[in-house]
Structures are given as structure tokens and as C-alpha cells.
């Protein structure tokens, strides 16, 4: 009974105790003359889902790509479970359990569904691909996420936009990530598929995965996120616990009203 309460209190109280799963400080990144990020701090705990919202070009994708090792920040530090990390590329981040669904999906059109799901983690027998095992595994992955793709040997180019998005999500969620970053994962999905993704996020949270969700569908944030961070022109302008805010406030924070006064 007491344990239950403590558990609930822990879930609601922010910031939490213990070391964050991922903790970043002072991240800056410029592309030529464009300051994409102008110093972003963020903490994220295991089992938590953080929503990131903001205008187009606010820097959401750039920020998360830095967490995933795709971009190297100009300045700033990243700690994973209290240990400082400095990625030289996405391979290292992936080895550390940081997975990302990119806005552009990052699929190989000419490779089949199973091959894309196992891209970079091919099952092998010696130097050879174990195609049968990958196809079985692919079917299992897709089934777990309730994705309906009849033929896992089909080339990804032949699939619909939503199916492609589902594959990118399945790829990132199926190999036991510690941090899962979803950059607009539901933009092309139909009703049932969105529900499946939200259910997936809840399931991963329960398993202790730290999830970052970028989306423009604000109603989804209220269903799965514990916290929300608002970005504006390359900075984090606000952070709110989900149960202490509402839709109007978030909309106001995104468009920047109140910051200009």
C-alpha cells in the first residue's frame, strides 16, 4: 500500500531522484550561419516519455539527431546513465542503446522489409545472411506492433507511406533500446496504427525505456507523455509536467506568445 503510493508519487513528481537515463547540457549546433541550436539542456529518466514540440525549424530534429549521434554538437555534453559520452557517429549511439526513428525514415528502398528491419544488425551464419531467420524475425516484430505487411520479402519501395513509417518504428523499437527517439512517427499513420504506436510507447515506458516523442499531434502528447518540452528558434523555452498544463497553454508556448511581451 505504501509502496504503491510511493510509486505513484515518484511517477508524478518531477524532477525525479536518481540519475537520469540521459542528461544533456548546453548543446549548441550551427549549420553555416544558421544557429540551429543555441544551448539546450534536458534530462530524461528511464520509464518516462518526454514530448518535444515547437514550430517548424525550431530545432527539434537537429536536437534529437545529436542525441542519436547523427550530428556532432559544436558544444555541450551528453551523459547516459551518469556516464559522459562523446559519439563519433550513429553507430556508437546505437551500440549504447539509443535508437531513433528519423523524420525521413532512413529506409533503403531497394532492400526488402525484413532486410530493412535488420539493417545494420543482419542475422548471419558466418559471412552469409541468414535470410530465413530474418524473415521469421521480421514477421514476429511486425506482429508484435500489429503492423499488417503481408509479404516481408517485398521491397520497401512498393509499400505505402504509413507502412514505411511502421517499419522504421518497428526497427527502432525491436532491439531493446534504452532511449527511443521518435521524430514525428505518426505523421502518415491511420487511426488504428497511431493507436498501436501510442500503445507501444506505453509498453516501452513500462519496460523502463526512456522515450522522446516529437509530434505536431498535441492530443497524442496528453495520452502518453509525462512531460513536455517546448522549443523555439533553437532554444528550450518551457518545460511542463503533463498533468499541470493544458492544450491552450502549450499552443501559446509553441507560437511564442508571452515571450514577446
Amino acid at each position: 500500500m505504501n509502496a504503491h503510493l510511493a510509486e505513484a508519487a515518484k511517477a508524478a513528481s518531477i524532477p525525479r531522484d536518481g540519475t537520469p537515463r540521459i542528461s544533456v547540457r548546453g548543446i549548441r549546433k550551427s549549420f553555416g550561419s544558421i544557429q540551429a541550436l543555441r544551448g539546450v539542456d534536458l534530462d530524461l529518466w528511464a520509464g518516462e516519455c518526454l514530448g518535444i514540440v515547437g514550430d517548424n525549424a525550431a530545432g527539434k530534429s537537429t536536437f534529437t539527431k545529436i542525441l542519436a549521434g547523427t550530428y556532432i554538437p559544436d558544444e555541450g555534453s551528453i551523459e547516459l546513465d551518469g556516464k559522459g559520452v562523446r559519439y563519433s557517429g550513429p553507430a556508437e549511439a546505437r551500440n549504447n542503446g539509443v535508437e531513433m526513428v528519423y523524420q525521413d525514415l532512413s529506409l533503403c528502398d531497394t532492400i526488402d522489409v525484413a532486410g530493412n528491419l535488420y539493417l545494420g544488425r543482419e542475422l548471419r551464419r558466418g559471412p552469409f545472411l541468414d535470410k530465413a531467420a530474418m524473415q521469421d524475425g521480421a514477421r514476429a516484430m511486425l506482429k508484435r506492433l500489429e503492423v499488417r505487411i503481408p509479404n516481408v520479402a517485398a521491397k520497401v519501395a512498393q509499400l505505402s507511406g504509413g507502412q514505411r513509417q511502421s517499419i522504421a518504428i518497428a526497427r527502432s523499437a525491436s532491439f531493446g533500446p534504452r532511449v527511443l527517439i521518435l521524430d514525428e512517427p505518426t505523421s502518415a499513420l491511420a487511426v488504428a496504427e497511431v493507436e498501436a504506436v501510442l500503445a507501444l510507447i506505453m509498453r516501452l515506458k513500462a519496460e523502463g525505456v526512456a522515450v522522446i516523442l516529437i509530434t505536431h499531434r498535441l492530443q497524442d502528447l496528453f495520452r502518453v507523455c509525462d512531460r513536455i518540452a517546448v522549443m523555439y528558434e533553437g532554444t528550450k523555452v518551457a518545460e511542463r509536467a503533463m498533468d499541470k498544463t493544458n492544450l491552450e497553454e502549450i499552443v501559446r508556448l509553441i507560437v511564442g506568445e508571452g515571450h514577446h511581451t
Binding site: A91, R94, S106, C108, T110, G115, L119, E122
Partner: peptide, 17 residues
């Protein structure tokens, strides 16, 4: 497989390590 992946989408190949 890696050769195909790099040809299809070099950046995707890099991102998966």
C-alpha cells in the same frame, strides 16, 4: 547487403551503423 544499402541510401546505412 551493405553494398546495396549504401547504394540505396548512404545516410540510412550510416545511421544504422
Amino acid at each position: 547487403r551493405r553494398v546495396c544499402a549504401v547504394g540505396a541510401n548512404t545516410e540510412a546505412a550510416r545511421r544504422v551503423g
